[in-house]
Design a protein around this nucleic acid. Structure first.
Lengths: 305, 305
DNA sequence: CTATATATGCTCTTATTGAGTATATATAGC
DNA sequence: GCTATATATACTCAATAAGAGCATATATAG
């Protein structure tokens, strides 16, 4: 069965018994911005060890979150598993990270932070981040120097020169900044680091993974609806998408898209804004669930510089 | 920091020390069909425990694979982590699965199996699977019975009625068949199960995840090139894409797509087929790496039944 | 010279996207 | 009742991109 080339397993090698920790990235939307629940002044996520009585990893994570926060989780998915050499001798810790959406955080004030506090360059809904992107571009250029392949990578990942900005590349962007020594977590640092909160361990990397995943997920599944109240206006829905994607969308086209697919149905009720025409309240129509398309209707990004 | 609702951690709960196993789904293409490397008569994957001296999970997996098979890995990504209650008392086993592409399996005959031996319904390159899909459709209808929401799910996932076939939904399809009791792994069985090899533990589910992931991956990244020889004809490239996606593509449109993006550059050499005009050999031009688009150029699927 | 299998070139229709213009509807405050 | 304001709609239009078809060129084996 096995190739004749197979070399024997080294005899001295020792399997490891690991502590296993379940880490939860809990995403919600408030104030038209995606937020996460954090601990330790924004430097850590809710987490807990895998227990004997947990019947599965995901259930274990749910248990922990419910114990710690009392929240009900919506759309949930596993993100990534990584190992941490446990400070010192032959132990290791395995950390399994999950992302989950939560609807409204009622009002008990959990320690929420905007995702864009950690990655300011990822929010491109208006021109405010353009100076920052300009800075990043010039510092990356400096780092790439005459290495054209490296610069090529920068341009594709950050949408520079003739490349388009791809919001799902947030992880690659973070990793590139890390390599370039522009974030405080970098092993070496290349001058002053960029603005943006950092976190313990690999957690900011996990968060970048989560951002990337959620942006991918909301495109093709009705997962956004797990972040909105049961009833919402189309504008709220659009703003939620914009908040997650980090870019503005064309209102008319967005509505066309949503209604073509019969993703939502109108309710009898209306929203009453402080001013202006009251907006119709809609609800998710899960018949079409499992699959939808909410990607289109993008507006051109503000030009960098 | 924590919500006032937080309930205390149960005092009797015990953290678990886990054995951690690294599982590798090794994908290659031979005979115009995607294959995987297996052990135990196709029922298991190469794997090994996480060792103290492994500096990261991915490196650990690479080490194991190289020891067991002597292969070099191309595009590699983590798939999914799951827990297995270790037959009996308070231990658990955590299994971390990876997918990796390998270029050509030279000639030392490893135990290769076609992925479509496990999921015959996923290969829709020609009409041969249509009778099977017809069977599946009718048995799913039987299972859904009068539960319209359930049937709705079947139609979206299997592309029935007016829905389009989405090749990236292979995991959802497998899970649906599992729920419907149509595969031998189902907890209860609903009559005779469908054709298709099964595997130990959750491995067939892992394989379905891998198939789904690779289909998603080859669309937007140049990962396919890690499955092809360094030099290849455009037809080989197309056939590799077709093999993975499980559907035929329009030749002229495919070439248009590939060449527009300058993904490949011609070499001086030619392929010499047994008959017919020799094909130009190309090589991957990695300038554009990190991002590309190879999705288009689909041919209509053969009608089911 | 022919059968065969590949490589190319070009056209055409349709659907999707991005983007713009115009208008309708409701409320608050004067 | 009029006006400012903020929303909800309706339509149009151009530019691509995607799916599909037709035709032809090129090389080899026999």
């Amino acid at each position: 069965m096995i190739s004749p080339l197979a070399t024997p397993i080294p005899q001295n090698a020792q399997p490891v018994l690991c502590e296993t920790e379940l880490v939860a990235v809990l995403v919600s939307i408030s104030n038209n911005t995606p937020h996460i629940l954090t601990l330790e002044h924004g430097r850590s996520f809710p987490s807990g060890p895998l227990m004997v009585e947990h019947r599965s990893l995901q259930k274990g994570m749910r248990n922990w979150v419910e114990h710690q926060t009392g929240l009900k989780l919506g759309h949930t998915e596993q993100l990534y598993t990584f190992a941490d050499p446990l400070h010192g001798q032959g132990h290791q810790m395995v950390q399994i990270s999950y992302m989950a959406f939560i609807r409204q955080n009622c009002d008990h004030s959990l320690a929420e932070r905007s995702i864009y506090d950690y990655f300011p360059w990822e929010d491109r809904r208006d021109v405010t981040t353009c100076p920052l992107l300009h800075t990043i571009a010039s510092r990356l250029k400096q780092w790439a120097a005459s290495n054209t392949q490296r610069w090529q990578r920068c341009t594709t990942v950050f949408g520079l020169e003739d490349h388009a900005w791809n919001d799902e590349l947030s992880l690659q962007r973070y990793e590139l900044l890390w390599e370039a020594g522009l974030v405080p977590e970098s092993s070496w640092q290349n001058g002053a680091h960029l603005p943006g909160l950092s976190m313990h361990r690999d957690y900011r990397r996990i968060l970048a993974t989560a951002l990337s995943r959620m942006r991918a997920k909301i495109r093709y599944t009705p997962a956004v609806f797990d972040l909105l109240p049961r009833q919402f206006t189309l504008l709220q829905l659009q703003q939620a998408m914009e908040a997650l994607a980090g870019r503005a969308m064309h209102k008319q086209n967005f509505r066309r898209l949503v209604q073509q697919q019969k993703l939502v149905s109108r309710t009898a009720e209306y929203d009453s804004p402080p001013q202006g025409r009251p907006a119709q309240l809609y609800q998710f129509a899960p018949e079409t669930a499992e699959h939808c398309y909410l990607a289109g209707a993008k507006l051109p990004l503000p030009a960098i510089s």
